[in-house]
Each structure stands twice: as structure tokens, then as C-alpha cells.
Amino acid sequence: MTSLILSTATTYLLPLLLLLSVYLLLHGHDVPGGGFVGGVVAAAAFALYAIAHGVEEARRVLHTHPRTLIGLGLLTALLSGVIAFVSNEPFLKGLWTTVTLPVEWKLGTPTLFDVGVYLVVVGVTLMIIFSVAED
């Protein structure tokens, strides 16, 4: 399985695909994309890496157990909803602020929510694929 070409390719593909996935995530609010598709792409990146380098290696590159990603994702989504309580708004009320970094960037709790979705999807997909592949 572990051909040289594949392993070399995936090593470079991983960051590229991850970048793509983040793009899909962040622009999902305006064009097709979003947390789910972004998450799947990111997971696919790691899955490919696992095919090339083995699951062990992929787990190492991921740094953390997929389960933790799921937990963090759910937590992010939950927090994005709970933030509204602070300003006495109902749960999951979208709150927006504009951040002017290099470019003007609108930041809101729905974006945060989508990040949560993204993390959960990555975690779930990898947890399933790793479990099945390791068997």
C-alpha cells in the first residue's frame, strides 16, 4: 500500500486539503460549502494520509484522539449558542461583530457554530475510519 509516490503526495496534500477545508468552512455562509463539507474534506485529508502512512502515523499527525475533536466541536457549538445568554438573548441567537484585521472580517456566533460542526465532522469521520481500518 505504502508506495513512495502516494506517501510523498499525501504529505503535501494534507496541508493543501486542510486549507481547502477551512476555506469551505469560512465561506460557507455566502457560497456553497460550510462546516459539514469542510469537515469531510479535512477528514479525507487525514484518511488519505492514513492510507499512505498507516493509521498510527495519521493519529500521530492529528495529535489528538478524534473523540476529543468531537467533544470540542460539540462544546464549540454549544458555546456559540450559550454566548447569547450573556446578552440576555435566546439560545443560539446570532450575534455579530466586525473584526478589522488585514481585511474586514465579519465574525459571528453562527460562524463559531459552523466551526463546531466542522470539528465534529472531522472527529466523527476519522473515528469511524480509524476504528474500521485498524481492525
Binding site: R67, L75, F91
Partner: peptide
């Protein structure tokens, strides 16, 4: 909301 959020939060903590 609490009957939904409390179990969810508990589950999240357990996961983490």
C-alpha cells in the same frame, strides 16, 4: 433549554 443543554454538556464533558 436546560433539560437539553444539561445532558449535552454532561455528555461533552464525559467525551473530553
Amino acid at each position: 433549554l436546560l433539560p437539553l443543554l444539561i445532558p449535552l454538556l454532561t455528555a461533552i464533558i464525559s467525551l473530553l
